[in-house]
Amino acid sequence: MLDSALSIFVAGRNLARLWEGLEITLWISLASVGLSIAFGVPFGLVMASGRRFWPKILRLYLEAVRVVPVLVLLFLFYYTLSSAFSVNLSAYVVSVLVFTIWGAAEMSDLVRASVTSLPAHQRESGRALGLTGRQVDLYVVVPQAVRRLLPGVINLTTRMIKTTPFVFFINIPDLMKVGQQIVEVAGMRNHLASVWVYGFIFLVYFAICYPVSLFSRHLEGRWQS
């Protein structure tokens, strides 16, 4: 039984192909998560700022993105943009763009929530102690907000990693798609192929996502003291 599993992975370049698929998955995930944080944090701070105009605009953006499935966004940016306006983006650019649009929206809401959830007396006490507005932000608000932010960010990160398989709808052979190609070919002779290959992919995703949550638990523990 194990022989039949091994024979799938050692056949031809199968292992190398899975690795290439994994590289694509990781690359798209890392780029999207990084950009989501880069855009989401300032967006969130603006939303929490209590100004009149920009928070409303960002709110609209957040709600608009939140109700559209990621798959629809992928099709919209890869196919519709190209056929309607001749804007021909490469599939990789589209995938990072779409995941960033989604991730930055979710991220901004997390940042807004963690900043506004701080009790007002924290800010007021800081002012009463004679700190300037900037000092209050830097030494009172940010350290506490970051702690509240962490679990949500980790959750968002793993969610984004797990959503990347959608990219094969815009013709990118990510880890999941390569697995499927292997299952289809090996499955002609070995009907357990899907069990072995998808089982392997499950382990790979676990190996990526679990350390991320471990790391967050470690940080939370350390900040508690």
Binding site: L60, Y61, A64, V68, L76, V87, N88, L89, S90, V93
Partner: peptide
């Protein structure tokens, strides 16, 4: 999807879009 959503989305994404175009 609701058309209102699709109509709003592109407008708001112009800055991001410009960025992507530059990269594409």
């Amino acid at each position: 999807t609701p058309t209102t959503t699709l109509r709003k989305t592109p407008l708001l994404l112009i800055p991001l879009l410009a960025l992507a175009l530059a990269a594409a």
